[in-house]
């Protein structure tokens, strides 16, 4: 089961929930950090990285001696990777989205496949060897996030498939998803089996959560909610969020209370589930309700 832990708003507690669920998860899992622009899961779950590989996007290389300046590539490309400058065609590989159209259609075969560095994928184990670990990290200055996420997802599928033949296969993937509701978040959500939305019941949090819910709804995936920072004094947002979830038929699988203690614990690099036995219970409860929700949804599917 692939569980994407997502949130519309950044800072709602995605990584806190991901790391804590990993801490209390009772079967071997793969922890995946898919927030490749700002990956943080590794800061909490002490991974032992065993392999690191670079990821690339296939972009064209221009052989200027073979180019006849016919302009086919410039017409095919919708992303400004080719420009006609004076009499010659110039290539700007940073603009390329990797569609491969120019390479396939160049009548002179003057374009060959090359590579642009997207970022890295790091694999290993986490939490003292209890879980496998996979994280993606995008290169500074790289504008395109989805290709890096697709490379990460391919690697995840490979790890899941490989683990099936081992004595202790990974039952689940706990995926820390990118924030927001546009391409990066969607790329991750659409490959998940279950989406768990972490929501902070503040005006910003509820607003961004409803955007995320609307974005994920067409994917027809089971969606559930965990309310983080519940019970902020004077905040009517808890009730508002509960009412919305009830109206939309979204189960609230857990309530994590607002606590200054937990903010301090997090600031020291601590996992919320290890803060105290009360906090551990919050997450074992969330784990149990999440597993029950997933079992029910998958049985219905």
């Amino acid at each position: 089961m692939r569980i994407a832990i997502a949130s519309g708003k950044g800072g709602a507690g995605k990584t806190t929930v991901s790391a804590s669920l990993a801490q209390v998860w009772n079967t071997p899992a793969i922890l995946v950090d898919a927030d490749v622009e700002a990956p943080n899961l590794h800061l909490f779950c002490a991974p032992a990285i065993t392999s690191s590989t670079s990821t690339f996007l296939e972009v064209p290389i221009l052989d200027a001696t073979a180019c006849t300046q016919c302009g086919t590539c410039r017409e095919v490309c919708r992303f400004m990777a080719f420009a006609k400058l004076g009499k010659t065609i110039s290539l700007f590989p940073e603009m390329c989205h990797g569609c491969g159209g120019c390479i396939a259609l160049c009548p002179e075969k003057a374009l060959a496949p090359g590579q642009r560095l997207l970022g890295t994928l790091e694999c290993g184990t986490a939490m003292g060897g209890k879980h496998a670990f996979l994280m993606g990290r995008s290169r500074i200055g790289e504008a395109m996030t989805p290709p890096q996420l697709r490379a990460l997802q391919k690697k995840l599928e490979l790890l899941l498939a490989q683990s099936k033949t081992t004595a202790q296969p990974y039952t689940d993937a706990l995926i820390d998803a990118p924030p927001g509701v546009s391409c990066p978040a969607m790329t991750v959500a659409q490959e998940a089996d279950i989406i768990l939305l972490v929501v902070e019941p503040t005006p910003f949090g509820i607003h961004d959560f409803t955007l995320a819910h609307r974005a994920f709804l067409p994917l027809q995936k089971p969606i559930a909610v965990v309310m983080n920072r519940a019970g902020i004094p004077g905040n009517a947002g808890d009730m508002e969020l509960a009412a919305y979830c009830q109206q939309q038929g979204l189960p609230i699988l857990g309530l994590l209370p607002f606590s200054q203690e937990i903010a301090g614990h997090y600031a020291q690099g601590g996992i919320a589930a290890t803060c105290s036995s009360t906090w551990e219970k919050h997450f074992t409860h969330l784990r149990d309700t999440l597993q029950a929700f997933a079992a029910k949804e998958l049985a219905n599917a």
Binding site: G10, G11, T15, E37, A38, P39, N40, L43, F44, S138, I140, G141, E142, A143, M144, T145, P178, P179, G180, S182, P184, Y266, A267, G269
Partner: peptide
Amino acid sequence: PGIGCPVISSLSGAHLAVLVVEPTPSGQHD
């Protein structure tokens, strides 16, 4: 948030970036 396409577009032509950081492991890293 992040450092991808919308952030890169936001920085284009900017004279000053104000970076709001919280002193947590995640905040420092990002």
